[in-house]
Amino acid sequence: MDIDLLSNIFFATVRCGTPLLLVAMGELVCEKSGVLNLGQEGMMLFGAVIGFIVALSTGSLWLGVVLAILAGMLLSSLFALVALVFNANQVATGLALTIFGVGLSSFVGAAWVGKPLTGFEPIVIPWLSDIPLIGRMLFAQDILVYLSFALFAVVAWTLLKSRVGLIIQAVGENPNAASAMGLPVLFVRTLAVLFGGAMAGLAGAYLSLAYTPMWAENMSAGRGWIALALVVFASWRVWRLLLGAYLFGFASILYLVAQGVGLAIPSNLLAMLPYVATIVVLVLLSRNALRTRLYAPVSLGQPWQSGH
């Protein structure tokens, strides 16, 4: 393998890992606060289709991004209403959100399938992008990838260093105690869910406006679900999330590598790789039940109401 191929692989790995990183960050914050939202796939698709339609009709990519984020938040607010206010089962509500989001995005986007759009172009930073191996990976990406770096920094700092992070963790571990201390549990959880929706919407926009600028039904191809597995992989720790997202990004571009080294494997079999990798990772990481118990937010997925 020559250095150019490696540099390309690194570049594509980060590109491919970015949507995963974005959704997974949202879900991480959500789960840290004790809420399991299985609706990531649905929110992501809805964000993707809204972002695409807005960008194509108005000609403004950024307006597309903003409305995609709002679209994700809109769906997540439905989740918050049903799962947090009405106290419905979070697993079922998340599934409903995904089914609804998949259907809604296909319905809304039916007339927009296959239309061409010029998406976000890479911004090549002079000098820095010439660094061997990692130059293109870090400094020749499009603006949304750079944005994901910045967002990661913000999320990591918030969770690890700030008082807000402490509050999120407290609410996710023991909502009763948090409430007894006067922390607004439902408010914190609702914000976390909305943040998750915003990130999923942004990830969707990245798919339809930058990664492959177009709209196709189910174009997220399970990334929302993989992101959920990523959070388990990361044992709810933010730095491992970054590592995991790019590892999965790498798994999804393995077919490029295979082509690069001249392997002829049917494309359908190669397309399975990220999903197989997800299962393998889940197996390796969940094997030790204790470890999951030690790191998972204690109240994850459990409905909670004040005054009980």
Binding site: L166, Q169, A170, E173, N174, N176, A177, A178, A180, M181, V298
Partner: peptide, 13 residues
């Protein structure tokens, strides 16, 4: 101030 019977502490903190 209040000391609860089932402590209102966060174990992982």
């Amino acid at each position: 101030g209040m000391v609860f019977q089932h402590f209102s502490l966060f174990e992982t903190l």
